[in-house]
Design a protein around this nucleic acid. Sequence first.
DNA 1: TAGTCTGTTAGACA
DNA 2: CTGTCTAACAGACT
Length: 259
Amino acid sequence: MPELGEVEISRQNLVRWWQGKGATEVLTHDPEVLTRGELNRLESVLTSRCEAVCRRGKYLWAEFADANVVFHYRMTGKITREPEPEPRFARLAWRVDDAWLVFKDSRRLGHIEIVESDMSEYPPVAKLGPEPHDLTGEQLRDRVGARTLKHALLDQRVVAGVGNIAITEVFFELGIAPDAHAQDLDGSDWEILARGLVDFFDRVVAEHAADEIEYVNTTSHNPFKVYRREGEPCPVCETPIRRTRVASRSSYFCEKCQR
DNA sequence: TAGTCTGTTAGACA
DNA sequence: CTGTCTAACAGACT
């Protein structure tokens, strides 16, 4: 489960597992996971009480009395609750109650940062566009400008939290071609698109909430209609799903349903 | 076995 | 300005 929805599910898990408590032990398996701040500072912050767990777009952070600890999962990161502190791909583990919270990341693209200031002064979050839930169709149209729609939606300054899977699925559901441009949409299309993004993320959170995020691969169940289904029949008209590349990212689509 | 693909982001470049 | 590609990294798959 992807992107904004996946991070929101993780946030909700961390609220249950961590909020209101501090870690009693911290183990750093990969010092390079921390890309801002010092490791001993991280250990001291994590052992203080976690006041809240927040999300903006794909950024997740825990708030403490005098600092924030930011997590970004990138492609393969996740935080799980484990009986032991060093499962496969563990990069950092901290003990809360009788279990370990573990930041796992097989590709090591994700990272953790300590932000000593208010999060509104942390540039990566400060420059994010609005959350899909706070965005009208009219605002979305204005923010996209004259670009390829997919390219603009992947730009986190346009709208926060949208990724390749959401775009692929929402374009299919709304009949939008993968390489559609802003000028291909009319006024009501923008409202429908803004609504479609919100609905997609709401569905992900409602249907896929679980203690561990499952990334889609060929051995796991693929819950999506067209994403990574090249050659399979379109769920609406049975035309084989095609794959193309737009904005250097794979797009899966039905050439009959999307134009 | 070797080559190809991948959920993100930042930055280089045309 | 827009759009495309790559690096960062490493595992899974063909």
